[in-house]
Amino acid sequence: MDIELMLKVYPFFLEAAWLTIVLSVLTAVLGLICGTLGAFARLSRFAILRFIAAAYVSVFRGTPALIQLFILYFGGPQIGIQLDAFEAGVIGLGINAGAYMAETIRGGIISIDKGQREAARTLGLSHWQAMYKIILPQAARLMVRPLGVNLNMLIKATALVAAISVVELTYTAQRYIGSTYKPFEMFLLAGVLYMIIIYVTGRGVVWLDRKVQIT
């Protein structure tokens, strides 16, 4: 194993890891927005919203994220959507992650005992007041760990945008393999950096989960 080479190139990998983090954060934010909208739409009293949300979830969970990215990035211009690789990566992965998060969030909301909603409504709270004051604060606590799983998957999924040439960790590793012919070292370096990002995120999720538990 060429340790010397790894030490020489790792600053460039750190830079790429930073882009992976930025990509993950933006994707997570977009995913949460799409997921929240999707979850509420699935729980809506309007059949049309429920249908749209169910279609969204099954389409984006039912096809490879890589195909979704290719359609958006390579196919987009054909239907008038011009995005650079980074934008396409964030939007594609964000919408994909949203489909998974929608199910997580919906699951959290419907797992709250219906007596809670009834007690809130009985006091005179509106549907949204009951949601905001009573259901969501409890559901959010239950969602921390499953959303952590979604986050874990999402960080790993950012590797896919290498295929549309976003210069993040995986793409950087491939690029250095082109010039060094050392795939073992380069992929190992990328793998270690992914592991660190995911480990730190995972600890953060555990910490948050403990912090929000009801005494």
Binding site: G115, Q116, E118, A119, R121, L123, G124, I134, I214
Partner: peptide, 15 residues
């Protein structure tokens, strides 16, 4: 509903 108080079998306090 604001004018009608209700008490449930399983209390339904907000935990």
């Amino acid at each position: 509903r604001q004018q009608v108080g209700m008490v449930f079998q399983h209390f339904n306090l907000f935990p």
